[in-house]
Design a protein around this nucleic acid. Structure first.
Length: 589
RNA sequence: GCGCCCGUAGCUCAGCUGGAUAGAGCGACAGCCUCCGGAGCUGUAGGCCAGGCGUUCGAAUCGCCUCGGGCGCACCA
């Protein structure tokens, strides 16, 4: 890995990281088997399984439980009777009745079993079953929600990966937020995550950057100097040229052009990469590894791949170019991997890079790309497979485009005309929390409409504030309770009578809080950060409802304490969720 | 022409491996502060889930087709 530029510097940006440590062995707090729903399933699988056995219905079909959509249908449900109905030739409701007849459940856990609809068996658990677990949330505190399902699996998440030819756009911003949050989710589920940025500082784009910079530099001395036709038009090039002049005076003007261009390229690259890292850091995004495509050439990895394809009979020469027989790998047509000019196409280094990912020992590889890169993926996966690696280990997350809206109108952007909004400007305008949250709010497969007015709005309309407000409000209540002497943060773990929590809003909030670990699991396994944003909105809403129904700091100390502990649990989940999303959870606002 | 994504309330979008009367926010309308943060809460109105056919006990969800919108389809990355 010596070819990679390591960057394991401290990640202390905006306090958004729960921890800079990525030691898999620290994920011992919550085992998967211990999540609330798993516990319920395990219990019921045992009980219902027993009933099926005594009816000789076992082994016919798989017994599963799921969470009903509608809360009035109980806490957990099974469709087993409907699945059995056909093979035992009975009405599903009759089958359900038979099962219930043989069922023996502990009333301490299960308060209600009923047949509903076409033949669902619904179970309701007791309030105490839930509230008794609040202590568990407090015990794990900032680790509540961590689930060790990755077992330290070596995982790489590649995202952003923009070449240093200009400032990052809002599209890159979405990718940064999505990639970084997926990385966070994978860490929370026990994966050993490396955050990586792949770039190319050779090639045509960079040559154009050099020429553009050089031209702007020359124009500082002679305004009639001609700017290249396809050059980068943006003002940022002028600024780089300006800085170059400050740094080197007029010393480059007289140089031979090759030498001058090299200097311009390196200067511009350094300046742009600095700016890219800086703006990413503003969003709390810090990569561990910056992998330079050029290193693949220098170390001969590119040649190696070509040779191997040739040896396998998967590469051939035609019209002066080298072709990859992708048609033999299940794709519609063959593709060029080395142009007749001798230059490789992007496919070749991409394949070589992915092979390196495998060679470096990654067992799970997540690529986050923009929708415009969709077409390249099948080639790379086919290439990887041909080289003997399992393409199933590569998960590609494609995100669709971002549209900025201002005052109900779409903000027109064009990179070529250089009138696009940069990520930096976006953060300047609405702040890092809103940027991250808005980018994460939607499913990656959907286009994202970013409403600038809404993101700036400091009111209940703004979903970020709604969430953060809930956290700040709880913090305020806890402060108040401590001032009143009702509550002592130091000894909250003992002497709480959770059975005093029995209002509908108290129970609803409790249940939702206990869903946190499985929400994390689901988000991580499907690489879908947006579901966490929806979940946290629900938590905030459930808290506000609870708050409005019950006064918390009251003279009845037992009840006050139980409610305060519920508040603290809600605060914990909100804070942990925000940490994963990479947004702040303010104590005051 | 081919591939991928999307089409759900006036607007922006959820809806996890198919499940029971389709959800949220905004917008509209009507309410709620002697009391811990009203940046909050409650209620009303609003939908043939683009359309069609199929799979099944059961479809917004799966399959095929059509229509709309986006993004790609190079010896550019």
């Amino acid at each position: 890995m010596g070819r990679c530029e390591e960057n394991r510097s401290t990640r202390s940006i905006s306090g958004s990281k729960a921890s800079g440590k990525k030691n898999a062995s620290s994920y011992t707090q919550t085992n998967k088997e211990e999540t609330n729903r798993d516990r319920m399933k395990k219990y019921l699988t045992d009980k219902v399984g027993g009933a099926l056995k005594s009816l000789s219905y076992d082994g016919i079909t798989k017994l599963t439980f799921e969470k009903p959509k509608d809360e009035t249908h109980g806490d957990i449900t099974t469709n087993i009777a409907m699945l059995l109905a056909k093979s035992v030739k009975k009405n599903p409701r009759v089958v359900a009745q038979e099962i219930i007849g043989k069922l023996e459940v502990d009333p301490k856990y299960v308060s209600k079993v009923e047949i509903a609809g076409p033949g669902f068996i619904n179970f309701r658990f007791t309030d105490e079953f839930y509230t008794a677990q609040i202590g568990n949330i407090l015990k794990h505190a900032e680790s509540f929600g961590k689930i060790n399902i990755g077992n330290g699996k070596k995982t790489q998440v590649e995202y952003v990966s923009a070449n240093p030819t200009g400032p990052l756009s809002v599209g890159h911003g979405r990718q940064a937020a999505v990639g970084d949050t997926i990385a966070n989710l994978l860490e929370w589920t026990g994966h050993d995550v490396t955050r990586e940025y792949y770039y190319n500082n050779a090639g045509r784009q960079m040559r154009m950057l050099a020429e553009s910079t050089y031209a702007r530099y020359r124009q500082l001395f002679d305004s009639s100097y001609i700017f290249p036709e396809d050059g980068y038009q943006g003002d940022y090039i002028c600024k780089i040229a300006d800085d170059l002049k400050k740094d080197r005076g007029d010393s480059i003007v007289a140089m031979p052009s090759e030498e001058a261009l090299t200097i311009c390229k390196e200067f511009a690259e350094q300046e742009l990469f600095g700016a890219i890292k800086k703006v990413l850091a503003r969003m709390g995004v810090v990569h561990d590894v910056f992998f330079n495509e050029d290193s693949l050439y220098k170390s001969g990895k590119i040649e190696e791949v070509i040779t191997e394809f040739r040896n396998k009979g998967l590469a051939y020469d035609q019209d002066g170019a080298v072709w990859l027989k992708t048609s033999a790998l299940g794709l519609d047509q063959d593709r060029v991997i080395v142009k007749s000019t001798g230059e490789p196409t992007y496919r070749l280094p991409d394949i070589a890079y992915h092979r390196e990912k495998f060679r470096r020992g990654f067992e799970l590889i997540v690529d986050v790309f923009g929708a415009d890169h969709i077409a390249t993926i099948p080639d790379v996966l086919a290439g990887v497979k041909a080289l003997g690696y399992d393409p199933e280990k590569v998960k590609v997350v494609i995100h669709q485009f971002v549209t900025l809206m201002r005052d109900g109108e779409q903000v027109k952007m064009s990179k070529r005309l250089a009138n696009f909004v940069t990520l930096d400007e976006l953060i300047d305008e609405v702040g890092s929390d809103a940027v991250r949250f808005f980018f994460l709010m939607r499913s990656t497969s959907s286009h994202l409409e970013f409403d600038l007015n809404l993101a700036k709005e400091q009111s209940e309309k703004n979903p970020v504030y709604y969430l953060q407000y809930a956290h700040a409000r709880i913090a305020s209540i806890l402060r108040f309770a401590e001032e009143q002497g009702t509550f002592n943060m130091a000894d909250i773990s003992t002497g709480i009578d959770y059975s005093l929590l029995k209002g509908p809003t108290e129970i609803a909030l409790t249940k939702l809080l206990l869903d946190f670990p499985e929400t994390i699991e689901s988000c991580a396994m499907h690489f879908e950060p947006h579901r966490l944003t929806t979940y946290l909105q629900d938590i905030a809403a459930a808290f506000h409802r609870f708050y409005h129904e019950h006064r918390i700091v009251i003279p009845e100390l037992d009840i006050a304490k139980a409610r305060l502990v519920l508040c603290l649990a809600a605060k914990t989940v909100l804070a942990n969720g925000c940490a994963i999303l990479g947004i702040t959870a303010p104590e005051r606002m």
